[in-house]
């Protein structure tokens, strides 16, 4: 199927939903479901671009910084846990425990300890997205082909170069998958921490609107969050597909041979 027809097909359901909502809400007169054009007008008033520098950009900055810290710390930690047997055995149960706990559980204790400043938000996001990156990197260490590892040893590639050029590259599909999960966790934590404890930000404004029964602003905020989340993920997937083009190419050539 061509790219254009795939895009067209993928747009059918979202467009249908938006159009149905617009038609239905235009004369529904429900306090919970304001007409679409009213929501869009509020969306434009708030987000294009009055509150961008005061409420949107700081949130996104926290998200980016937190995720960056998580990646910078998570990859080396995962590499150590994946490569050093006893370290893996020692910390494995902790990571398993973490996997089964929802990340927003972090918010109450960290807010209590760190407060509601940006640095606290960055910490919450970084801690929450650290674990998926770390776990995925540790798993990724097993993806290197033993023959290739032997080849690296035979050519006396040093430990650092072997880690960077062999283990991390071989594990990159897993690691990028972990970062994607980390991004989703980071997004949830960004929004939730603003909803629960903040004095600005998209999450805060949306939550305030709900508390004050301002359903139009609430929907405008919800819409922005949905669009941001979708865009962040789409950008990530595009980057990942570029980085992993070798992986796709290899699988296609194996499948056809």
């Amino acid at each position: 199927m061509s790219l254009r027809s795939r895009v067209a097909l993928g747009l059918v359901v979202p467009v249908a939903i938006v159009v149905s909502y617009a038609l239905w809400s235009a004369n529904a007169a429900s306090p919970y479901f304001p007409p679409l054009d009213v929501i869009l007008t509020r969306f434009r008033e708030l987000w294009l671009f009055d509150l961008v520098s005061s409420d949107v950009l700081p949130s996104l900055k926290n998200l980016g910084l937190g995720l960056l810290l998580a990646v910078i710390a998570g990859i080396p930690c995962g590499a150590i846990l994946g490569r050093i047997r006893w370290m893996g055995e020692m910390f494995g149960p902790l990571l398993d425990f973490w996997r089964s706990v929802p990340p927003i559980m972090l918010i109450p204790p960290l807010v209590l300890i760190l407060g509601i400043e940006d640095s606290a938000k960055v910490t919450i996001i970084a801690v929450g997205s650290f674990f998926p990156v770390c776990v995925a990197t540790a798993d990724g260490m097993r993806q290197a082909d033993p023959t290739l590892v032997d080849a690296a040893r035979a050519m006396r590639l040093g430990p650092l170069k072997t880690m960077v050029d062999i283990y991390l590259r071989a594990g990159s599909p897993a690691i990028l998958g972990g970062i994607q999960i980390g991004l989703q966790a980071a997004f949830v934590l960004m929004v939730a921490s603003e909803m629960l404890a903040a004095y600005r930000g998209i999450g805060y404004l949306t939550m305030q609107a709900q508390v004050t029964f301002d359903s139009v602003t609430m929907w405008a905020g919800t819409l922005l969050l949905a669009l941001l989340g979708f865009t962040a993920n789409a950008v990530f997937v595009a980057i990942r597909n570029r980085v992993l083009s070798w992986h796709t190419g290899m699988r296609v050539s194996r499948a056809s041979s």
Partner: peptide, 11 residues
Amino acid sequence: FQEYTRSLMPW
């Protein structure tokens, strides 16, 4: 290596 295909870096 005997398994030369696997001794090369696919990336």
